[in-house]
Nucleic acid binder design. Structure first.
Length: 890
RNA sequence: GGCCGGGUGGCGGAACUGGCAGACGCGUCGGAUUCAAAAUCCGAUGCCCGCAAGGGCGUGUGGGUUCGAGUCCCACCCCGGCUACCA
């Protein structure tokens, strides 16, 4: 029979008949009651005055208030909450804050689409999502909540911006920028994915504009070095950041230009090949090109430059875009051997990396080799390949280590050692120097948008750009703005840019008095706000941007949880910011996040139909009926509405476009927050993708209800019994001893799973196993086991555990501690050894635990099980591993 | 192309340093209950052969090391993510 999704579980459907039945599991009632109690008692408000070793700071990446919670949030925040509650049970004082990354473009889009003011829209969303978070039972310290668009936060951020200006970390320059055609706005390099805007997917083009930059590259080396200390970060993130920083060491070499008194300076990581240069490549938009080009070549060069200017970033730098080069007609001299080499302008050379010019060594560089072949340029071998005739014609570039040749007095040197030798020699001769180049660029922070934090600068007619004085802050956004989707609304406001806070005309001081001034209308990239919010949580009430004592008390964050998609954006900006904050005197902790957990995506099945044109209509799982064969394999899917088949598509990340999302609100209403949390934690380890399956969630709901019913059916007996000993030795019945041992085994498994890598899934499985083992054992022991289960599950499903704990007659669960286990309590007197023959298990034998190897071997050989297995075969070798296994070799 | 993950039943996933593969959950099948269904409870469930006892095969593929390999080594295939002319 096909199963329908999102069935009402029986316990909920009967509400009208049973809502007075104190025995029924009613998640909504229990959960909201406990949530109100936690709120009223301020259960999760955190102090700042306890010794740091007794404290724990767990943080999840705060959300953009898009309107309502989605499953990704639910998963992320459930993981964080389970950790927070676990650490509290462990006796630690936990800081677990929440807030809102509330500046950003969707608010303006909503204004354009629906006429809602961005501010109203944003704060309405926050109010709704806050209620959803509370309904999930997350244990946040709401006293520290803020939104980054709050005047208080924005004001202090402007103060920090001015401090960064004083520190020399802010500058403005005209630059070629990534311009999103979707947003009408500049993007940072990190926000361009595959040549497209990371938010809208619209093409990104190159445009020249004056821009504000943060000198992030000043910290490039420290950002790279710091990665080595982040040993509790996933290797993948460290690798991505390291690649993004992209440090290369090599040499800058000056090539005199023939007929000019200037040099063409190149950057190379292979100075050992400098004797093999046969041409030069220069970026077409390099400033020297105009001076170099000969009249004959000018039309061709201009054509190449025009082509590049018209290209999008994607077309220009895509891997399979054709490589084009045009001779400039100019030549330069290789300073190491006096050879004359032509200078080409080439589209694959980037003006803003290195020096914007490259020395080309076709014999030892794959791309130069291809270019030389295409343009019929000479290929000159200067590194001999071991075991290969150096005179033989080359069919491909040799890029590995070999022996230097045709390189003057360097001949015979290994090329890897030659790098340093050539750099030293070039420096002596005055032809070059050692150089380090980074792929990482300064962070462009200007955005031509309304709903962002204004950059606190003004422009005077004679004074030019001037930072505001701290006493002139804050710069507040005007409320009366028009949103029509065309450019920056701040720019077109009639008076905001020229009016001071008190309503008078805006002026700026000059040596001769005051002159009219105009405000900067760019606002800050929203990554700016998320670069220091984790520090502000430690002192959300501080008058100053940050209270150093409290920042240093709580930082670094013990565990930071979020998606890996922020590896090179948020996580790198935040690390940069923390270092800058240190140098501004706000902190002395240079790395903000001690341990990082990147949770996987939430994925779900997709269903669709395709029309003749290949357009797909996607259906939500709630609209679809799936049939299985008798093995449980899905056979076909049909749309409920018309009974006609739909295609079962791939499993993909939940998204609007694939219509495979699930609304957490509906799940909470139907199954409760505890069941939803339990599923999010149980169905996959945190760092792996979570496959969404409503039937799985229903199973978790059933587990909770079984737990509830089990205790209630025995409530009178259990609550009047005294919690018994957990020591197997205190029981005589085998079933009691076994249960006591299993209790220790379960606590051990759960504790290790939590401590090692937050493997909630295995911790929960262990709890379910222990629950399944409950039968008619000793009553006191069973009470002990049930109480332990409630404690072990409390981080995951806090409401039901707190409620049952209390109904058993206990004080508040929050005063209790995570149960302890003893290794010696889980050992049995005898061990059931598997007996293998040629690696295949053929039988078992039960032997006392404390036999040593010799005694064990004797016991094994004498055992009838062995004799039977060996019948007719000769034992060649006997392997006995105490405590593990018996293996017979025949 | 480069880098990083990952391939285990019908599905999600277990398996600490090599030691009984498939814990736990879902699904499926059978049974109880029911006028009937839903819900609930009990049982079975890696695949193949067999009435059964039992046997054979099994952790992407092919080799190797070992008494013993999901786990270690070599080669390859497939999937996912990130990155993409960085000199």
């Amino acid at each position: 029979m096909p199963t329908s999704r999102l069935r009402y579980p029986a316990g909920l459907r009967r509400t009208s008949m049973t809502d007075t039945d104190p025995q029924a599991y009613e998640p909504t009632q229990i959960e909201t009651a406990w949530q109100q109690r936690w709120q009223a008692e301020g259960s999760f408000v955190t102090r700042d005055d306890l010794p740091r070793e007794q404290c724990y700071y767990v943080l999840e990446m705060f959300p953009y208030p898009s309107g309502k919670l989605h499953m990704g949030h639910v998963r992320n925040y459930t993981i964080g909450d389970a950790v927070a509650r676990y650490q509290r049970l462990r006796g630690l004082h936990v800081l677990h804050p929440m807030g809102w990354d509330s500046f950003g473009l969707p608010a303006e889009q909503a204004a354009i689409d629906r006429g809602a003011h961005p501010k109203t829209w944003t704060y309405d969303n926050i109010a709704h999502m806050r209620e959803q978070l509370k309904r999930m039972g997350f244990s946040y310290d709401w006293a520290r909540e803020f939104a980054t668009s709050d005047p208080g936060y924005a004001h202090r951020e402007q103060q920090l911006f001015l401090e960064l200006v004083d520190q020399g970390l802010v500058y403005r320059k005209s630059a070629i920028v990534n311009w999103s055609t979707g947003l009408d706005c500049v993007l940072a390099n990190e926000q361009v994915h595959d040549g497209k805007c990371w938010r809208t997917g619209m093409p990104v083009i190159q445009k020249e504009l004056p821009q504000w930059f943060l000198r992030t590259t000043a910290y490039a080396q420290e950002l790279l070095d710091g990665l080595a200390t982040l040993d509790q970060w996933p290797e993948a993130v460290r690798k991505q950041q390291s690649d993004w920083l992209g440090r290369s060491r090599g040499a800058e070499i000056d090539f005199p230009i023939e007929g000019h008194d200037r040099h063409l300076t190149v950057f190379t990581t292979r100075p050992d090949t400098v004797f093999g240069v046969t041409f030069m490549s220069i970026a077409p938009d390099h400033p020297l090109v105009a001076d170099l080009v000969t009249e004959a070549q000018r039309p061709a060069i201009d054509a190449l430059r025009a082509e590049i200017a018209a290209q999008s970033a994607d077309e220009r730098t895509g891997a399979d875009s054709p490589k084009k080069g045009v001779a400039t007609g100019a030549w330069c001299i290789n300073p190491v051997n006096g050879e004359r080499v032509p200078i080409y302008a080439a589209n694959f050379v980037l003006a803003d990396y290195g020096t914007g010019a490259v020395m080309a060594v076709p014999a030892h560089d794959t791309r130069d080799f291809a270019f030389a072949q295409a343009h019929d340029l000479p290929i000159k071998r200067v590194i001999a390949e071991d075991g290969v005739d150096p005179a033989a014609p080359m069919t491909e570039a040799f890029t590995a280590v070999g022996t230097m040749m045709a390189s003057g007095h360097f001949d015979g040197l290994r090329s890897d050692a030659g790098i340093d030798a050539v750099i030293d020699w070039l420096a002596e001769q005055g032809h070059g120097r050692e150089a380090i180049t980074w792929r990482y660029r300064d962070w462009g922070v200007s955005r031509q948008r309304y709903w962002g934090n204004p950059i606190p600068y003004v422009y005077g007619e004679s004074m030019g750009m001037v930072p505001l004085r701290p006493q002139d802050l804050p710069v507040s956004l005007p409320e009366d703005v028009v949103f029509d989707g065309r450019g920056n609304p701040l720019n077109r406001h009639p008076s905001w840019a020229t009016t001071a806070a008190d309503g008078s005309p805006l002026t700026v001081a000059t040596p001769a008095g005051r002159e009219p001034a105009r405000r900067e209308t760019d606002t800050l990239d929203t990554f700016f706000e998320s670069s220091w919010y984790f520090a502000r949580y430690t002192c959300a009430d501080a008058e100053e941007p940050l209270d150093r004592r409290r920042v240093d008390h709580w930082l670094p964050v013990d565990l930071y949880i979020g998606g890996i998609e922020h590896a090179c954006m948020h996580l790198l900006y935040a690390r940069f910011f923390q270092k800058a904050l240190c140098d501004l005197g706000h902190s002395s902790v240079r790395e903000p996040f001690k341990r990082l957990l990147c949770q996987g995506m939430v994925v779900a099945e997709t269903y669709y139909r395709e029309d003749e044109a290949g357009n797909r209509t996607w259906f939500n799982a709630t609209e679809v009926e799936v049939e299985h064969d008798e093995r449980g394999q899905p056979l076909r899917a049909t749309l409920r509405q018309d009974g006609q088949p739909v295609v079962i598509g791939r499993i993909e990340k939940m998204s609007k476009s694939k219509n495979n999302g699930v609304d957490p609100q509906a799940l909470i209403e139907r199954y409760g927050a505890d069941a939803t949390r339990l599923y999010a934690l149980r169905a996959a380890p945190p760092e792996k993708d979570l496959y969404w399956d409503d039937a799985g969630l229903a199973g978790d709901y059933r587990f909770l209800r079984r737990l509830w019913t089990h205790i209630h059916d025995r409530l009178e007996a259990l609550s009047t019994a005294t919690s018994g000993s957990d020591d197997p030795a205190d029981y005589s019945a085998a079933a009691d001893q076994a249960l006591a041992r299993k209790l220790h085994a379960t606590i051990k498994r759960a504790s290790e799973a939590m401590d090692r890598d937050f493997a909630f899934n295995t911790a929960i499985a262990a709890c379910m196993e222990l629950f399944n083992a409950l039968a008619d054992q000793d009553l006191g022991l069973r009470r002990r086991v049930v109480e332990s289960l409630l404690l072990l599950l409390a981080p995951m499903t806090p409401h039901i555990c707190a409620e049952l704990w209390q109904r058993l007659g206990n004080q508040d669960l929050s005063a209790a501690r995570w149960p302890a286990y003893r290794d010696d309590a889980l050992l049995e007197d005898s061990i059931r050894y598997p007996v293998q023959v040629k690696g295949v298990v053929r039988g078992h034998l039960e032997l006392p635990r404390d036999l040593d190897r010799a005694a064990l071997e004797q016991a094994v050989q004498a055992h009838p099980v062995i004799t039977e297995i060996l019948a007719g075969r000769e034992l060649k070798r006997l392997i006995v591993v105490p405590g593990k296994i018996v293996n017979l070799v025949v």
